[in-house]
Design a protein around this nucleic acid. Structure first.
Lengths: 152, 152
DNA sequence: GGTGAAAACACTCTCAG
DNA sequence: CTGAGAGTGTTTTCACC
């Protein structure tokens, strides 16, 4: 898919604030309301914009302890991989999970309240999953950057 | 901050789709439009909802190659840490960056088009940063889970 | 590609209760 | 929290550049 400069700016603006009115966007882009409206609709219909979501402040909902957990499976049989992935998807503490190359098979981003909750999560949820050989947790000291915005 | 069941549901709905109208939400929650409106405003003003954003489909904007890069600094002097973090924040390919405990100092989530772009990013951007001792890249084979949604 | 205007509709926001 | 009303934005169509 090809985007001109106006589309790129529009996508940037919408990634920063999805609640802007078409009127505001038309002013920022130097276009008419109709033109902006049609571009936005096109990007939505194309699936370039997949959804609009509210982003919560993790400090205000007691979920500001972030852990990056590296997981190795005992084997890479398709059955094991599928089952592990299915189970991980259902863990609400796991915000992201990537199947990766390298020393570990998966890297999980986990959000909980504090170390006690994490201990609890490990004991009652993660380590009860099947086919896990080992895990290695990296605790977040600080969140340097954490955005959903992709610059085109 | 304390949330009742209605707030929790409301936050879940808004994290799934921020473009729902108050009317739709009032129906789902079994409340009046005004009641929902005031709850949403309160959550916005409290800062629990920090922003509303558009989420793009990475496959449609040629940014679907995700790398988790582990970075070690040569030293942990405050000056080095500050400078590295400042420089990383300005790299648009870096979507997330966490200062973590363990073998590596930082874990970065990087989104680019393909391996060629990543090589380019490493050579012209990441490895030109000061004070880096070593890096280790984990390439994403598949994105098992990648959400912005936090269940309360 | 784009503009501008008009009309119908839906939603936001406030206020009295 | 509710219901109603005023104000505002959205959405669509149109003629036109």
């Amino acid at each position: 898919m090809q985007f001109d400069e106006t589309d790129k700016k529009l996508l940037l603006f919408l990634q920063q604030d999805a609640k802007q009115t078409t009127k505001e966007l038309s002013y920022k882009l130097g276009l008419s309301v109709t033109a902006v409206y049609e571009r936005v609709k096109k990007l939505e219909n194309n699936g370039v914009i997949s959804k609009y979501v509210a982003i919560l402040d993790k400090t205000k909902i007691d979920r500001n302890f972030i852990i990056l957990c590296h997981v190795k499976l005992i084997q890479h049989k398709k059955e094991y991989v599928m089952q592990f992935e299915k189970e991980v998807m259902n863990l609400q503490e796991v915000i992201e999970c990537f199947h990766v190359s390298g020393d570990y098979d998966y890297i999980l981003k986990i959000c909980v309240k504090d170390m006690e909750d994490y201990r609890n999560f490990m004991l009652t949820k993660l380590t009860t999953l099947q086919h896990i050989a080992s895990t290695h947790s990296s605790f977040t000291i600080s969140e340097v950057k954490n955005t959903t915005e992709i610059t085109l």
